[in-house]
Deep mutational scan, measured.
Amino acid sequence: VPQRAWTVEQLRSEQLPKKDIIKFLQEHGSDSFLAEHKLLGNIKNVAKTANKDHLVTAYNHLFETKRFK
């Protein structure tokens, strides 16, 4: 089981690129989880459509539901 890579403050910070969060989610989330949160596909394309709040919610949801690969 992966550990949380970032704190809530870090997740919301401008310093953390959306692409980093997407990469983490794609590496650790199950396909059904990723599909549900519309996070499947090319990281660049996902970054265009997903806002930061959406990614933070998905990140927290992944750990709450433990839907890891």
Rank of each mutant, 00 (worst) to 15 (best):
V1D: 09
V1C: 15
V1L: 10
P2H: 09
P2Q: 03
Q3G: 06
Q3D: 14
Q3K: 14
Q3T: 11
Q3V: 10
R4T: 05
R4F: 12
A5T: 11
W6H: 14
W6C: 15
W6D: 13
T7D: 15
T7E: 14
T7R: 02
V8P: 15
V8C: 15
V8E: 15
E9K: 04
Q10E: 12
Q10G: 02
Q10W: 04
R12P: 04
R12D: 07
R12A: 13
R12V: 13
R12E: 14
S13M: 03
S13E: 06
S13H: 04
S13C: 04
S13Y: 03
S13R: 02
E14C: 08
E14R: 08
E14A: 12
E14H: 09
Q15N: 13
Q15M: 09
L16T: 12
L16R: 03
L16P: 13
L16M: 06
L16W: 03
P17I: 06
K18T: 13
K18R: 10
K18Q: 09
K19I: 13
K19D: 15
K19F: 08
K19V: 13
D20M: 10
D20H: 07
I21C: 01
I22C: 02
I22K: 01
I22M: 04
I22T: 02
K23V: 07
L25K: 00
L25T: 00
Q26C: 06
Q26K: 06
Q26W: 08
Q26T: 05
E27R: 09
E27D: 11
E27L: 09
E27Y: 05
H28T: 13
H28R: 04
H28P: 00
G29K: 00
G29M: 01
S30M: 07
S30N: 11
S30R: 05
D31W: 15
D31K: 13
D31C: 15
S32L: 09
S32T: 09
S32K: 11
F33C: 01
F33Q: 00
L34T: 01
L34Y: 00
A35S: 12
H37V: 06
H37W: 10
K38C: 15
L39G: 00
L39T: 01
L39F: 03
L40P: 01
L40H: 10
G41V: 02
G41N: 05
N42M: 11
I43E: 08
I43K: 06
I43N: 06
I43A: 09
I43W: 11
K44A: 14
K44W: 14
N45A: 14
N45V: 14
V46P: 03
V46L: 13
A47K: 13
A47G: 08
K48Q: 14
K48L: 14
K48C: 13
T49M: 13
T49G: 09
T49W: 14
T49Q: 07
T49Y: 11
A50H: 07
A50F: 05
A50W: 06
A50K: 08
N51Y: 07
N51G: 09
K52S: 04
K52G: 03
K52I: 10
D53W: 05
D53E: 14
H54F: 07
H54M: 13
H54P: 02
L55W: 03
L55D: 01
V56N: 02
V56M: 05
T57R: 09
Y59H: 02
Y59F: 03
N60K: 05
N60E: 15
N60F: 13
N60V: 15
N60H: 07
N60C: 14
N60L: 15
H61I: 08
H61Y: 08
H61S: 13
H61P: 01
H61A: 13
H61N: 14
L62H: 01
L62D: 00
F63C: 02
F63S: 02
F63Q: 02
E64S: 07
E64M: 07
E64N: 08
E64C: 11
T65Q: 12
T65E: 12
T65L: 09
T65Y: 14
K66C: 12
K66G: 12
K66R: 11
R67Q: 11
R67H: 09
R67L: 07
R67E: 08
F68Y: 06
F68N: 03
F68A: 03
F68T: 06
K69M: 05
K69G: 08
K69R: 13
K69W: 06
K69V: 07
